[in-house]
Computed example of a mutant assay.
Amino acid sequence: MNFKQRSFFAVSTCVALTLFSSPMLPARAATADAGASGTALSKEELKAQKKADRQARRAKKNAELSTLEKNGYNPAGNQTNYPQNLQNAQQKAAGQKPTNAPAVAP
């Protein structure tokens, strides 16, 4: 892999981790608080709660991705303009006019 490919991979990995891990943090904190409270949950109840949290996170992620795809973003498509095409889709979803400026000046 050349330098451009490695840097693209590193940036896209960081963005993906940020987007997909931040919604999980409050849910994990709520689970920890529930376990720390005075009520003791059975193993089955805790498992069911974790499953429900996981399904809710997945549904939220899929809804966000669906919204971006409806506004022109294709995660499996050509990624040569990766940050800009994602930002344009986010701006369209927010009801703003997308900017077509390059993300990084050459």
Rank of each mutant, 00 (worst) to 15 (best):
K61G: 01
A52L: 05
Q79R: 15
E69R: 13
K70Q: 11
K61V: 07
A63P: 01
P75F: 02
R58V: 11
L68I: 11
A52M: 03
Y73H: 13
L68F: 11
Q49N: 05
K51C: 00
K51S: 11
L41V: 10
A40R: 15
K60V: 05
S66V: 01
S42A: 13
A52N: 03
N71T: 09
S66N: 06
R58C: 08
P75R: 08
E45C: 03
S42Q: 14
A52D: 05
E64L: 13
E45F: 10
K61N: 02
L65Y: 01
G72P: 07
E64I: 10
T80Q: 08
K51W: 02
K60G: 10
S42L: 06
L41F: 15
K61H: 00
S42Y: 11
S42C: 10
Q79E: 09
K70M: 06
A59F: 12
N71K: 14
S42H: 10
L46Y: 09
A63F: 00
D53Y: 05
L41P: 07
E45H: 09
Y73R: 05
G72I: 08
S66F: 01
K61E: 04
A48N: 08
G77C: 02
S66D: 09
Q79F: 02
A59E: 14
S42P: 12
P75A: 09
R54I: 02
A40C: 13
K61L: 08
A48F: 03
Q49E: 06
Q79S: 06
Q55G: 03
K43A: 15
R58N: 10
N62M: 01
K43N: 14
K60D: 04
G72W: 11
Q49Y: 02
K70T: 14
A52H: 05
T80E: 03
G77T: 07
S66C: 00
A56K: 15
T67Y: 03
P75Q: 07
T80M: 10
K61F: 03
L41R: 14
A63Y: 00
N74W: 06
G77L: 03
N62K: 04
K51E: 13
K51G: 05
Q55F: 07
